[in-house]
């Protein structure tokens, strides 16, 4: 019997201490597809990712990964399950004291008895996949933000996990580098057709390029779960507003934009500018 690596979220409630961030999230992130968790800033996307990775424990609900409800697993059992996950953190989260090659094979060098040559070959293999082979001996602080993210992706896939989770892989990148990152994720989907790829993002351009499935979160609640085409056709006012990139309260924004500066402050600013 083969394990299904779908991720099923049922009425999940989560937060930090007494502060509830996710009120009620339900959705399915299917295996073999690229799923995008979409939502505005502060809606709880990264909190949901932390629940899946097991860095926080949900307050209520079910989170089924690999056929097991991870909210009921013991720590040791969950750690075993988590070996099937690769995670790309927002800024790559590469260890500053290690070179790129050492970083990307860290999961292998820590858990397996491989020779230096074997580790080197593995490092070069995955770095080649993300186009960073020639930077193998560079340290993370010698690379650009986009390169660090690609290196983080290389580390996440080095053990060819069943689930790949990416936290805002295109945030802070210029459009060309962001498009390259999208291409990389699609390439991962082609190379590993059974891999469940979950991307947390608020980048609409990226969404239309890579997503097979979309889960939209608004203020801690899931408001849509389906294909990108179904999302496009949705008449939900919030989704229409989000996809059209229109401001929540245009009139208020406009008022704020035209609010006049205190005359006394204005006079002092003018004097400073003239000095």
């Amino acid at each position: 019997m083969t394990t299904s690596w779908d991720i099923q979220i049922k009425n999940l409630k989560a937060g930090y201490g007494d502060h509830v961030v996710l009120e009620d999230v339900t959705g399915l992130l299917p295996a073999g597809a690229v799923s995008v968790i979409l939502g505005g800033s502060g809606c709880g996307k990264s909190t949901l990712l932390r629940q899946i990775i097991g860095l926080s424990t949900p307050m209520a609900g079910e989170l089924i990964v690999g056929g097991q409800d991870i909210t009921r697993l013991k720590a040791r059992e969950y750690r075993r399950l988590r070996r099937n996950m690769g995670v790309l953190f927002q800024d790559g989260a590469l260890l500053g004291a290690l070179t790129l090659a050492q970083n990307v094979v860290l999961p292998l060098s820590e858990h397996l008895s491989l020779s230096r040559q074997e580790l080197r070959n593995e490092a070069l293999r995955v770095l080649r996949m993300v186009g960073l082979e020639e930077f193998a001996d560079y340290y993370p602080n010698e690379l650009s933000g986009g390169m660090r993210k690609r290196a983080g992706l290389a580390r996440a896939i080095v053990a060819e996990p069943k689930i790949l989770l990416c936290d805002e892989p295109t945030s802070g990148l210029d459009p060309i580098t962001a498009a390259r990152m999208d291409e990389l994720l699609l390439a991962m989907n082609r190379h590993f057709p059974d891999m469940t790829i979950v991307v947390v993002s608020h980048d609409l351009a990226s969404l239309w390029t890579i997503a097979d499935q979309v889960l939209v979160i608004r203020e801690g609640r899931s408001v849509f779960c389906g294909t990108p085409n179904a999302l496009k056709e949705s008449t939900d006012p919030y989704l229409v507003q989000f996809l059209n990139r229109s401001a929540e309260s245009a009139s208020d924004e406009a008022e704020a934009g035209h609010a006049a500066m205190d005359p006394a402050v204005r006079a002092r600013v003018d004097a400073w500018l003239a000095s």
């Binding site: 097991g54 996950m85 953190f89 800024d91 590469l94 260890l95 500053g96 999961p107």
Partner: peptide
């Protein structure tokens, strides 16, 4: 501390290290 705020410690835990 820098490793903590830049997710490096979380990354270690996720890699089962």
């Amino acid at each position: 501390g820098v490793m903590r705020i830049s997710d490096q410690i979380d990354a270690l835990d996720v890699m089962d290290i």
